[in-house]
Design a protein around this nucleic acid. Sequence first.
DNA 1: GTCCATGCAAACTGTTTGCACGCGC
DNA 2: GCGCGTGCAAACAGTTTGCATGGAC
Lengths: 145, 145
Amino acid sequence: MTDNEQLRDKLHTTNRRMTRQRQLVFDALEHSHDHLDVESLYQRIKAYDSNISLPTVYRTLAVLREMGLVEEHQFGENHSHFEVAHPAPHYHFTCQKCRHVLEFDAPQVMEAARRLSEREGLYITDAHLFLSGYCIECRNNGEAQ
Amino acid sequence: MTDNEQLRDKLHTTNRRMTRQRQLVFDALEHSHDHLDVESLYQRIKAYDSNISLPTVYRTLAVLREMGLVEEHQFGENHSHFEVAHPAPHYHFTCQKCRHVLEFDAPQVMEAARRLSEREGLYITDAHLFLSGYCIECRNNGEAQ
DNA sequence: GTCCATGCAAACTGTTTGCACGCGC
DNA sequence: GCGCGTGCAAACAGTTTGCATGGAC
């Protein structure tokens, strides 16, 4: 099943329509392996459809997130970043200087979450581990530490 | 050393002045063992000084955070929550239904961070682990899961 | 043809800034 | 008294909403 079929399918089973705009937003996220904020995403999509509006991008992202196709992250900023949902849990480090994002996994985190949920009777649906500091390049440039 | 002396001291060593407003903001955070958002904090402080302004609360929080006396958290919302800084690293779970915040520690997290930083040459200054889901009360009330 | 999705403009929330006055040191 | 801190109002960034038109099914 191609990604677009997956999108069409998920939309159909939730009584939503496949539109050019939704396809464009999803494609843009798929083809960027970055963690785009809404404004950057909007700019990229405008290259393919100069008429698309920012509210449509926001509404589409909300729909995609609701359907579980994309994930939203804050990264300690006042705006959101989005990426296509990965099957495996994964976490993020961002450099405070160059804003580069590094993804990593750490099975210890789900283990800690599992223990906590057992002890406290929680039902945990989301786990975000967000590290920040300085990456090796920024450290070497003497820009910090 | 009392907490107010600690505040006065930190202010002094960073060439800042002790004001009634700064004292009030710090006190309010100290006496609430919650994770207040700025609006709630503002409302509480207004009970002691009805003239204090919201920008002053924001400016004071920025100063306290810079001095390392308070910590800021996002909790996946579009506004910030603040708490007095704890010596030990600690993490948060919030219930998506009742918004209750549970603090916990998990040494595995710093261990994972340490390994990652060694492997990638990072200098890590902050680690936030944020879990969310449903607390035991909200599960039992059949409100979710 | 029906009704959901879009574009536009305007509203809204959380936060920050410019500026003149006031108070800590 | 000097200059940082405050209150007020206004600006700002990111996001959401109301509404009339347009397009998916």
